[in-house]
């Protein structure tokens, strides 16, 4: 097990290096810089700023310098939010984004797995069609459509729930979490149904039935673990997607999370912030993928142990 994790971590290193290098040069080679948009600063001031931020040095020198800094965990100061470091900004946005993602994931797993399992028990009946149609709606209603619709209907017309902010008024966390979780619930529901159908058609389910195991125990004890394999392998991409999806949801609901900072930083050409956040996201995604693989392997006895006792 430790060898496996080590191997995967080693594989992640080149990925991260590519991300860092590509984003660094992409940002630097693009036209414009963080100060060019502000109204005509005096030439000396510009020059001073550029020297201060070491923008006047050769690109490669800057790149090596940057690598050295991030190796020590220093992502540098933000260009736009003067006086704040990138690390501080990420640190401020992270808890919000994580909390949002965690709620969304919880909703997605609860709704997705239960509806998918229910659908798989009576395929091609209304018990299957209703959740699967809902799932299809979920897949075809992207968060930037679903979010505004929920805001309009639940928030503005019915006035049931607040429509913006995060932790300011009770209940303001509900709509964003639902908006973000719904799509994933839809995917998970379809995967869970497929996985369960596959497992329920296996010979060993017939064995369980022949032993006199009740239908509910067949589902819970015999089928669920195998049937959830596709869901588990989807967790890696899902977690990455929940982070990416936060751009839209955080914009719609005006939530001060990482996603909003990121889009703003990109528009502002806040070099250090863009780079810092890109790298941070990449690390998160790599780590989540790794975790998902480990969980998947742990859930499957065939992958967990390599020994095969003969006889």
């Amino acid at each position: 097990m430790p060898a496996f994790i080590l191997k995967r971590l080693l594989q992640a290193l080149p990925v991260l290096l590519i991300v860092i290098t590509a984003s660094f040069f992409m940002v630097r080679l693009a036209p414009g810089d963080p100060f060019s948009q502000e109204r005509a600063l005096p030439v000396e001031v510009m020059k001073g700023l550029r020297t201060y931020y070491k923008l006047d040095q050769p690109l490669v020198t800057q790149y090596i310098e940057y690598l050295k800094n991030i190796a020590q965990g220093d992502f540098g100061p933000s260009f736009k939010y003067s006086g704040r470091t990138v690390t501080e900004i990420i640190g401020a946005g992270l808890p919000v984004t994580f909390e949002l993602g965690a709620y969304a994931l919880l909703i997605a797993l609860l709704v997705g797995i239960s509806s998918g399992v229910i659908a798989s028990l009576r395929p091609n009946t209304w018990q299957d069609y209703v959740p699967m149609s809902l799932a299809m709606i979920g897949i075809c209603l992207p968060s930037y459509v679903l979010g505004p619709l929920l805001v309009l209907i639940v928030g503005i017309w019915l006035e049931w729930l607040p429509v913006s902010g995060w932790g300011y008024i009770p209940g303001d966390k509900i709509l964003p979490s639902v908006t973000m979780g719904f799509v994933y619930a839809a995917y998970i529901s379809r995967l869970a149904r497929g996985g369960m159908l596959e497992i329920l058609s296996q010979d060993f389910i017939r064995t369980a039935r022949a032993k006199g195991v009740s239908e509910s125990m067949i589902v819970l004890r015999h089928a669920l673990r195998g049937g959830m394999q596709p869901v588990i392998s989807f967790m890696g991409p899902a977690l990455a997607g929940l982070l990416g999806g936060s751009f839209v949801v955080e914009t719609i609901f005006q939530i001060p999370g990482l996603g909003r900072y990121y889009v703003q930083a990109a528009f502002n050409r806040d070099y250090t912030l863009i780079l810092g956040m890109t790298i941070f996201f990449a690390v998160l995604i790599v780590v989540f993928n790794l975790l998902a693989d480990i969980v998947a392997a742990w859930m499957n006895p065939r992958l967990r142990s390599g020994k095969s006792a003969g006889g």
């Binding site: 990925v15 991300v19 992409m26 990416g244 751009f247 990109a266 050409r269 995604i285």
Partner: peptide
């Protein structure tokens, strides 16, 4: 393909679109 898969593409595309 595995390495490319691990890249945060949504983020990359945003970066790409903003910059270029």
């Amino acid at each position: 393909v595995d390495i490319l898969y691990a890249l945060p593409f949504t983020i990359f595309i945003i970066l790409l679109m903003v910059i270029f």
